[in-house]
Each structure stands twice: as structure tokens, then as C-alpha cells.
Design a protein around this nucleic acid. Structure first.
Lengths: 225, 225
DNA sequence: ACCTGAACACCGTTCAAGT
DNA sequence: ACCTGAACACCGTTCAAGT
């Protein structure tokens, strides 16, 4: 059909050489279309038209692969560089953006709790948060420990709102029933606060949590400070 | 050899009838001796001398099984009932006890983040924490939201210090190297605070985190309060 | 150095069939 | 109602052998 040489030897540029970026890219693709639970060595190898053993040249294990995927996703976090708000509000903005990225794929949040990321996008975000804390006059030690605490809270909240597959509503309904019919003899304080325990949207709660943390770390000295 | 009747039909009282408590008990046994990763339907069925399908009469799925195991473990949490300290210090005591139970089996902590427990031992602990917050004069809404935030922080910290199997030291060394050799152009604030980011034992950091949270939730009003 | 096939040692869950 | 065997549809990782 056309005169390009080699066209008969390879109809398509099949099987591009394996590279780590290529592998991570394919993994992100699978995650976006099928969810993180499908990002397995076997499924990924199938996508790249090879065997699972081949991937181990570029990737240490599944956990490391998931960490690489997570860092890629963190490129979407909005660092609110052009925000003209107070440092506290800008900080909440950044944290909420981080949260929304994790909520968009909550299974990632689970893996983020154990596999603490060290990729470039994670560092970019940490750097930005440290900048904002510095602007707020938070001392070094407190800022350094605080960034961990803030991100951990966001990560854990996202992970909490992540179910493997089945109904969130069922779980919440079950919890709601447990609290409404609670044994007031045995758990008097839970009974007394049942309504409050169930109140508030995740966003309201987390916004409050960030305020609590920011105020607290602003005012509570670290040991030896 | 001896005259006990039936001895030839059953040498030992093999295969006691399956019950949910019996199943959870066996699961706890496996966890204590082999770790949570071995608490699988198949391994558990083997332990109980049956097939995995039989367990599904008593247990909905693996996640529910792990949640039941976790609540069993939470029976070990020391609620510091006889403590004569200030409410803040007693609260930190309880939280540290919860932490130590999770750290003794950190894989449980991972599962605790997603499968929020509702078992009797968990409720017992929540009730105790609410009692202490009440003693500290923390208003209802803040106490209710705060107990979640406090337990989530402890849970996430424990989960973070949980590796599937391999070396914690390697990870930490890798992080340490990343931070020491960091690109100061790109991540100036990380570079500036590298030492502080690596400082502090997990216990020191978490004790501080609990202070931050307790002070913060004591002083930061919830929305609509 | 990189890639592969094949194997090892597992998983969760379902379902028809039995008691 | 409870229990079972067997099957379905997967996993991660290693390793000897090839190129």
C-alpha cells in the first residue's frame, strides 16, 4: 500500500520496548479505566503484551508499582499558587485538593497510608505546604511534623471513604442502627451523643479537622522547642 | 486398649460444630501465631478441618472476618479507669494503649482504617473517650467528631508503621537519602527542614499529635456550634 | 542486560448437590 | 439449615533458560 520500508515486517509498531515510564503509564491507564484492584502484575503484563516476570526488571513489587501510580496522580493536586487568601485558607485549599484527588480513586488512599510516597509530585506538595506554614510563622519542627499529620489525616479520611466494592450505604446504615439501638446501660456516652456521632458531611468534618490541626500545631510546641 | 465406649468411632472429639465465636477464635489464634496475612478463608477452613465454603454461613467475607478479629484484639486496650491524672493525660494514656495494641499487630491497623469497627470492645473504648472529653468540658458535637479524629490518627500512625514483610529500615534509609540529597532549587522548603522532617521517634511525634488534637478540638468550634 | 515460559504456592467466592 | 466438593477465575513471585 505504501512504500515505507519494513512495513511488511511489522504491520504496527507492536511491543514497544519496556521502560519504567511506559510501565507506570500503562498502570495509570488501567487504574483510570478499571480501578486500582486491576493494577496487578499479571493484568499489566497482559496489557504490555509480555509475561509478568518481565516487569520485575523495572519494578520491585506490586507495592512499589502502586506508589509510582499514586505519585503520578498527585500531579493533579492544585497547589493554589495564585491564591490571595490567608495562609490558613490557602493551606486548607491545598489539602482539600489533595483529598479530592484521593477521593477520585480511594483505593489509592489505602495504599498511600502504608507506602509513604517520595515521588516528585509528593515532594512538590510537601514543599508547598511547608511554604505556607512558614508564611504562618509556624516554627521549623512543628511545621515538619505538622505536614505529616495534615497529610496523614487527609489520606486516612479518603481511605475511610473507600470501600473495596460493595455498598457504603449499607455500612452507614448498619452503623446508624447500631448507634440508635445502643445499650444505654453499657455505653451511656455513646447513647447520649448518638446524633452528633452521625452528624456532619465528610467535607464539613474534614474542614473542621484541618482547622483543629492547623490551630493546634500553630499553638502547641513540639517537645524540646 | 481401654474400655471407653465410642473410642473407636472417634479417637478425639474431632470437628466441634462450627459456630461464629469458634471461627473468630480460630482466626485470632492464626493471627497471633502466623500474622493477619495468614487469616484467609482457606487457611482458616483448614484449621477447622472443613472447606472454605462452610465458613460463609457464619462470615460474610474476609473483610468482615478481619473486623471481628480486630474487635477481639481491642479487648486488650487499657481504658485507664483507675487513673487519677488530668483528663488530658488520661486520654493520651487510653489512646497510647489503643496504639500499642495496633502496633503489636500493625496489619490490623491497615484493615481498621477501611473497616470501621462497630464491635463491643470498640464501643467500650469510644464510650470511655467520650467520657473523658465530657469531663474536659468539650461540647457534644466537638467530642463526637473528635473521637473519630483521635482514633483515626492513632490508627493511621499504626498502619504507617506496618510493612507487609520487608525492611522498615530500608524504607527509612531511602527516605533519609532522598531528603539529604534533595534538589534545593526545586524543593527549597523541604531542603531547609530536612533534619526536622526526619527528627523525632514515632512515640514523640504521636504524643505531640495527640496534644495538638486535644488542644485543637477543645478550642476550635465545630460549624454551627 | 533483558526477557521469557513455566512453575510454585497460594487466594476469594459461588454453586449444585448432599445431609 | 447447614455443610461440602469442586470449580471458576484469579493472584505475586521466582527461577532456569534463552537471546
Amino acid at each position: 500500500m505504501n512504500g515505507r520500508k519494513g512495513i511488511s515486517r511489522r504491520e504496527r509498531p507492536a511491543k514497544p520496548a519496556l521502560t519504567r515510564p511506559g510501565i507506570v503509564d500503562a498502570a495509570v491507564g488501567i487504574m483510570r479505566t478499571e480501578g486500582l484492584q486491576k493494577v496487578t502484575m499479571r493484568r499489566l503484563a497482559q496489557e504490555l503484551d509480555t509475561g509478568p516476570a518481565s516487569l520485575y526488571v523495572y519494578v520491585a513489587n506490586t507495592a512499589e508499582l502502586h506508589a509510582a501510580v499514586l505519585d503520578e496522580m498527585l500531579g493533579d493536586v492544585d497547589l493554589a499558587e495564585s491564591s490571595d487568601q490567608q495562609w490558613r485558607d490557602t493551606l486548607v485549599e491545598v489539602l482539600m485538593s489533595y483529598l479530592s484527588v484521593l477521593l477520585a480513586n480511594p483505593q489509592l488512599a489505602r495504599s498511600a497510608i502504608t507506602a509513604r510516597p517520595t515521588g516528585r509530585n509528593y515532594l512538590r506538595m510537601v514543599d508547598r505546604i511547608l511554604e505556607l506554614l512558614d508564611r504562618g510563622g509556624v516554627p521549623a519542627r512543628r511545621a515538619a511534623w505538622g505536614v505529616d499529620l495534615l497529610l496523614q489525616t487527609a489520606t486516612a479520611s479518603a481511605a475511610e471513604h473507600a470501600e473495596p466494592t460493595p455498598g457504603t450505604d449499607e455500612d452507614w446504615a448498619a452503623l446508624s442502627r447500631t448507634l440508635q439501638d445502643i445499650d444505654a446501660e453499657r455505653y451511656p456516652h455513646v447513647e447520649r451523643l448518638a446524633d452528633d456521632l452521625l452528624s456532619g458531611s465528610p467535607t464539613d468534618r474534614l474542614t473542621w479537622a484541618f482547622r483543629v490541626l492547623i490551630d493546634g500545631l500553630h499553638d502547641t510546641p513540639a517537645p524540646g522547642e
